[in-house]
Design a protein around this nucleic acid. Structure first.
Lengths: 171, 171
DNA sequence: GTTAGTGCAAACCTTTTGCAGCTCT
DNA sequence: AGAGCTGCAAAAGGTTTGCACTAAC
């Protein structure tokens, strides 16, 4: 069940808690992962085969505009779709491995400092913040080092590496 | 002219400096603004009416992959297109007014701290970082306060406000 | 001369819209 | 009862791809 806070928050605004929305809300904060519209649609379809993709998009848009969920890009590693997560958690940055697609979350004071400084120095009223960091996770750094070693030991003709697609991101 | 550094950097990789690429490179770091593919295409067309939109996309993709430019979303305030800027500047966050679309840049130590902490705490090798902050600029905060005052003084029926489109972002 | 890069047309993927019918409060 | 939502079909917006031709090195 999606936490009462989101549902009551919606109810207070006069937003109807339809069957479709309940399903989507439960999925969004039930799964620990960052889901995109299509994944959400597929999962929702398992619970209600009648649900329409458009309803998913409309619900996400509404939740985003009412600031109940955050929209992420995750560095567009797999395409141009967006990912979503509840706003219940503490503010965090998303750290994405450009090789394997793994997504880690970083909670730490620089994020709050940043927010405060922007408010103070620019006289800005911060409503939402999104920090995404791309690079290589410790695992892929090792992999890459090993590959380089092998290349040195066995100098075969260099294969031109075109931008590789990463694996699907995980929470 | 785009700085020699970018052009030599490309030349060293064996990338050809075609007429089209020269135009685009000059535009990208000549204008102080954050341009999207379409704006870039229109500007490039003024200098070379034969240039094709596809070439713009291909060039941007290549520059992004070779890490010579950064891709921004600017909170998708006007649509789902991307904006681009050279990587010559110091790392900075983009602060976007959700009402008027103005984009300010924030340089400050929390950004470096964040980067360092992610590298140290997660053993991550940071390659690129993107921080976007949405909210209300000082000007729009005043506007909004005034509107609220007027609403209080003259209690007309509330007009439901649907998500408004912001003005085009500026550097 | 070679190979990378360009232009064109067409496809692609994600998201939005118009409208008629359904449903939650 | 009636506004708010949904589903369907169709379109829009942004970006990529296949292929033959062109131009940079």
């Amino acid at each position: 069940m999606a936490p009462k806070s989101i549902k009551t928050s919606l109810a207070q605004r006069g937003v109807r808690l339809t069957r479709q929305r309940q399903i989507l809300l439960d999925l969004i904060d039930g799964s620990g992962k960052h889901l995109d519209a299509e994944a959400l649609y597929q999962l929702a379809r398992a619970k209600d085969p009648k649900i329409n993709r458009v309803t998913v998009y409309r619900t996400l848009k509404m939740l985003k505009e009412t600031r109940l969920i955050d929209e992420l890009d995750l560095m567009h590693l797999e395409g141009d779709q967006h990912y979503y997560e509840t706003r219940l958690k503490q503010e965090h940055a998303h750290v994405i491995c450009l090789n394997c697609g793994k997504v880690e979350e970083f909670f730490g004071e620089p994020l709050q400092r940043l927010r405060h400084q922007v408010e103070k120095n620019l006289g800005f009223q911060v409503v939402l913040a999104r920090t995404e960091i791309g690079g290589y996770c410790s695992h892929c750094q090792l992999l890459r080092a090993r590959e380089l070693e092998e290349a040195k030991a066995l100098p075969v003709p260099v294969v031109k590496s075109r931008g590789r697609r990463a694996a699907s991101p995980t929470a």
